[in-house]
C-alpha cells in the first residue's frame, strides 16, 4: 500500500486534533487515522468504511493521490467506486476513516464548502441544470467565487457587474477549451448526451479546482466520444495541472489515461499501482473473471 504507512508522528495525530478542535469528538481508533506524510499527496483516504442499512459498501479503503496525477479507481459493478467519490465530495458520510484534502483532515467532508476547498466533480448520472443555457451552466461552476448580494445584482452595481465580467471571461475560456462554442447559448437539456457530459466537465473545470473527481465521465459514450473525452481529461491535467480522480468502467480507456490505478472489489481495495502492475495482478484478474463483466475481463487479459 503506497504511502499509507509512511506517516510521521506529527501527522499521525493531525486528524484527531483538528477533529477535536471542530468539536466532533475523538477518533475511536487512533491507529486507523493514518495520514500520509508525503509532501506531494494532495488527497489521502485512510481506513474509509461505509455501509447502507447493514450492507457494507466500502471497508478499510486507503487511497493516496499525488498532486497532478490522473488516478483511476476501477472495479466491477457495485464495488463501491461511486460511494468512494461521494464520500470524498461529502455527499455520503463515511462511518470510519478520515479524508485529508490538501493536508486538511476531515471525518466528514462538508459538501457545501467543497468548491472552496478546491474540489470539483462530475456526476455519474448527469446533474446539470436543465433550465439554464450551456453558458450559464458552466458559469455556475464559479458560483463559489461570488461575494455580491441580491441587492447589488438587482441594482446592477459595479461590483456585481465586475464579478459577472470575470466569470464570463473564465466561462468563455472553458467554452473554447472544450469546443462548446456552437452550442453555448442553447438550453442544456436540448443537447445530446455526450455533449451534456462535456458541459459537466466544463462546469467542473471552470472552478479551477485543485482536485477534479470524475464519476464515469465516459459512460454511455460512443468510441469516438470516449477518445475525445479522454483527450480533454488529459489536456485538463496538462494545461491546468489539476489532479484527477477518475472512476470509469471502460478499462481500455483507464489504462491508457491513468498514471496509477486502484482496483476495488466488494468494497475492498484489492490492488493499487501503475496500469501495468494492476493488469498483471492475479487478484484483479480473478475479480474480473469472477463477475459477469466479460467485456472488461477480456480487455484486461
Amino acid at each position: 500500500m503506497i504511502g499509507a504507512s509512511l506517516g510521521a508522528a506529527a501527522y499521525e495525530r493531525a486528524p484527531e486534533i483538528s477533529r477535536i478542535l471542530a468539536g466532533a469528538g475523538p477518533v475511536e481508533d487512533t491507529r486507523r487515522a493514518r495520514l500520509s506524510a508525503k509532501a506531494d499527496a494532495i488527497l489521502t483516504l485512510s481506513g474509509i468504511g461505509i455501509s447502507f442499512g447493514g450492507v457494507t459498501a466500502l471497508s478499510d479503503v486507503d487511497l493516496e493521490v499525488k498532486s497532478g496525477e490522473i488516478r483511476a479507481v476501477i472495479g466491477p459493478n457495485g464495488a463501491g467506486k461511486s460511494s468512494l467519490i461521494n464520500i470524498i465530495s461529502g455527499l455520503y458520510h463515511a462511518n470510519h476513516g478520515t479524508i485529508a484534502i490538501d493536508g486538511q483532515p476531515f471525518a466528514r467532508v462538508p459538501a457545501n464548502r467543497l468548491a472552496r476547498l478546491g474540489v470539483a466533480r462530475t456526476f455519474q448520472n448527469l446533474a446539470l441544470f436543465g433550465g439554464l443555457s450551456v453558458r450559464d451552466n458552466i458559469a455556475s461552476g464559479r458560483v463559489h467565487t461570488r461575494h455580491t448580494s441580491f441587492v447589488e445584482h438587482i441594482a446592477g452595481l459595479p461590483r456585481a457587474r465586475r464579478e459577472d465580467a470575470v466569470i464570463a471571461e473564465k466561462t468563455d475560456q472553458i467554452v473554447v477549451f472544450l469546443h462548446l462554442e456552437a452550442v453555448a447559448d442553447r438550453l442544456v437539456a436540448t443537447l445530446p448526451y455526450g455533449l451534456q457530459k462535456r458541459v459537466e466537465l466544463a462546469r467542473a473545470l471552470v472552478a479551477e479546482p485543485k482536485i477534479l473527481l470524475l464519476d464515469e465521465p465516459m459512460a454511455g459514450m460512443t468510441a469516438t466520444e470516449k477518445a475525445e473525452m479522454a483527450g480533454f481529461v488529459r489536456a485538463a491535467r496538462d494545461r491546468h495541472g489539476v489532479t484527477i480522480i477518475l472512476i470509469e468502467h471502460d478499462i481500455g480507456v483507464v489504462m491508457g489515461l491513468s498514471d496509477r490505478v486502484a482496483v476495488l472489489d466488494y468494497g475492498r481495495k484489492i490492488a493499487d499501482g501503475t496500469p501495468a502492475e494492476v493488469r498483471a495482478d492475479p487478484a484483479v484478474i480473478r475479480a474480473y473473471i469472477g463477475t459477469a463483466e466479460g467485456e472488461a475481463s477480456d480487455e484486461l487479459l
Binding site: 461529502g90 472552496r116 446533474a127 441544470f129 439554464l132 455556475s140 458560483v143 462546469r203 472552478a207
Partner: peptide, 18 residues
Amino acid sequence: RNFIAVRDNETAARVIGV
C-alpha cells in the same frame, strides 16, 4: 440562476458552491 440551479438539481448546486 442560483434559484434555477437549486430547483433543477439541489445536490449539484450544493457541490458547486451555491
